[in-house]
Simulated assay, not measured.
Amino acid sequence: MAIAELPNYGDISRRRKDAGQAVIAAASVLFIAVVVLQALNSAGILPLGLRDWRPTLYAYLLWAVALGYGQVLMRGQAGLKALFILPAALFTAAMAIFPTLFGLSIAFTDWNLASLTGQKFNGIDNLIQLIRDPFYWNAMFNMVIYVLFVLVEYAIAFALALLLNAEIRARKFWRVVFLIPLMLSPVAVSWMVGKSMLEYRFGPVARFARWLGINNPTFFSDPLVARIWIEIMDAWVSIPFVMILLLAGLQAMPKEITEAAKVDGASAWQRFWQITFPLMLPVSLTAIVLRIIFKLKLADIIITVTSGGPGGATDSVSSFIYREYRDRSNVGYGTMLAMFYLVVIVIFITILLNTLSKRMRRMT
């Protein structure tokens, strides 16, 4: 049938719509059945002799074709228009949903790369081990501390944005200078600061501390001090990102409002607290949420400088999961840790965004 001959949605017969639904339903059932059988085979519960996940890929492609054909049958011209966005949607699903489902299938298995037994399904044993793992919950507690430090980073970034938005000398030069940490890799910063400047034997900071009379200057042996230094390095790299977002918001804010308040006799603090800060609230919340998302992925600085030490005191969840893979080769348990952390992040970010949107609606 030619494209021009396709009927509109209102002209499609009930029989044609039922045929389209039947095609999609049959392909969906086949696809789900292949996925289930493939997962059972991968977990060792139902050995079918399948060596890889190609049957699932072929079933997915067949389902995609059936979905497009069924849309055209059910909706006519409207279904044909949907075909233009269908490849992008299916590609997104393949890149996001399938790896997640594959990770879930691994999370419920006993799979250690150092073992000769291979991958075996072990039910909820990994979940029970996670609940009883004090080092994982210690890493979770550390993440709470690191996330709370975002408010401190925001305050510093806001102060810098106000400074760079003011009429100061060499303003463009200072903007470039304050953006330099953002241009550096966190791993480079870890080696430059954590491994070199803060090295307790020959580092310049340690030498200066000895010159001041401190006999044994160590920066990562005490849990509290180690956390602070990890946060300082991460903040130094990340504050410019928040600062540039806030600076863009300040430059977009109408200057007539603050100038009118200044003429009316409002002090600098009153202009900031009653005008600038409320007007900057949407930009501020966006910057804070983005920074929290990036903070939840904190790992590279910790892995490079402390490897989670001393005794796991500086571990983030990501660095702990990384060591579970690297040091113990425990793929099954490490994947369970990652899946559980993903669920926690999704719940936390959803609650945070809902709470912020409700507060914004009340304020506006």
Rank of each mutant, 00 (worst) to 15 (best):
I180G: 05
V189R: 00
I292H: 01
V34Q: 07
I168T: 07
E256W: 05
S307P: 00
I156Y: 12
N165R: 09
P99W: 07
Q71E: 10
A226E: 09
A107T: 02
K81G: 07
F149A: 04
F84H: 04
M197N: 00
F108G: 05
A252C: 05
V65Q: 09
E324N: 09
A25E: 09
A96W: 02
Y69A: 13
K358M: 11
S307V: 01
Q119A: 10
V35W: 15
F202K: 06
I303P: 02
K297N: 14
F98I: 12
R291N: 13
W236Q: 08
F98L: 08
V150T: 14
L285H: 05
F294G: 07
W137Y: 11
N112L: 05
I351R: 06
G70P: 14
P278Q: 07
A266K: 02
A313F: 08
G68H: 12
S307A: 11
Y322R: 06
L90E: 13
Q129E: 13
A248W: 06
M140S: 11
L250G: 11
M74H: 06
F277T: 01
S267G: 15
A261D: 03
F84K: 08
M253I: 07
W269G: 02
A93G: 14
L86C: 04
G194N: 06
M253T: 12
G265Y: 04
M360V: 12
S13T: 15
F320N: 07
A96M: 05
